[in-house]
């Protein structure tokens, strides 16, 4: 029975996961995640890897997480952002236009220039909070319950107080899917 397995049997070791310091710009996080997501060594992004990057503070404690959607919201808020981000972007544009200085509005710049500027945002300003952690010795049912209860796709795995890895939704999916193939 696959679900009798423990979290430690499925976790991705922390050394294999992308990490970034909270004080670094988003561009660093993008580079780190791109590296683990793609097989950059063969020059093509053909194999899906990890879709999140862990954010650590100066004491190397886990303080947050970033995923693709969060990063895209920061890079292109007027498209990928929620209602708040879009209204905020429109408000800023209206502010410059009403002052007769629409040429200074950065949203009128090229897509590339805006993305580069937005990638300078510090990671700690945009990272998501950690919602739930799990211990390596816990079983997978507990992990599933926690993941869906907290509406997250990854759970940091601790051995006592030490962060040792990450449990992903995709790993749990494969574990549950194994039941159907038995």
């Amino acid at each position: 029975m696959p679900l009798t397995r423990k979290v430690k049997d499925l976790l991705v070791p922390i050394k294999d996961y992308a990490i970034v310091n909270e004080d670094r710009p988003l561009s660093d996080a993008i580079m780190a995640l791109r590296k683990v997501y793609c097989q950059v060594e063969i020059g093509k992004c053909t194999e899906a890897g990890h879709r999140n990057i862990l954010v650590l503070d100066s004491q190397n404690k886990l303080v947050g997480i970033l995923d693709f959607r969060t990063m895209l919201r920061v890079l292109i808020p007027e498209i990928a952002g929620g209602v708040t981000e879009r209204l905020m972007a429109l408000g800023v544009s209206a502010a410059f236009a009403e002052a007769g200085t629409e040429e200074l509005d950065e949203s009128l710049l090229s897509f590339r220039a805006r993305v580069i500027k937005n990638a300078d945002t510090k990671v700690k300003q945009v990272m998501l909070k950690i919602r739930g952690i799990i211990q390596a010795e816990d079983d997978l049912l507990k992990a599933l319950t926690l993941m869906y209860g907290n509406r997250v796709t990854v759970l940091p795995v601790y051995k006592n107080k030490e962060l040792i890895g990450v449990l992903r939704e995709s790993d749990l999916f494969l574990a549950v899917a194994d039941i159907t193939t038995e």
Partner: peptide
Amino acid sequence: AGALAAGPGLLKM
């Protein structure tokens, strides 16, 4: 209203 709509974005930028 216009100022409040733009304020957070301008500070953030």
